[in-house]
Amino acid sequence: MITNILKTALLIFAFSMSASAGFSQAEADKLIGVWEPSHGKAKVKVEKIGSKYYGKIVWLKEPNKPETNEPKTDQNNPDEKMRSTPLRGYRILKDFNYTGENEWSEGTIYDPENGNTYSCTIKMKDDNTIEIRGFIGVSALGRTDIWKRLQTPKK
């Protein structure tokens, strides 16, 4: 009898934990999708790997180098080995955790135009608009860009 009560309690606990996790998960997963930075030169697909969020470049307005007409690579990366890596498919947003109140933090953003990686926070202003702030050390030393959500592609 006592064993059955314990089992039921455990099940209820497990169910309630997963339900509450599911609720915050849905909120956290709002970041998943395809986004366009304000400059309109790229599209970035945000996906979830494990418990963290990552964003990779899936489209470039100018996918090829003008001088060679070959696909653009990460030619400004300080790591020489990475310079031949194609930009399309490159993960520029990394390691974001959902920290509540429509904010994802503890991540980094990579700028392929200068090869720098910045600390970064993402704040969702509405379901289709996010503010991406890259900064050095403290948030005050940074720059904010507004990204807009694109429709989900048809596979």
Partner: peptide
Amino acid sequence: YSIYDNLDFVDGSA
């Protein structure tokens, strides 16, 4: 990646 070529903004504009 061609599926990302022609995507509109969800809220119409940017």
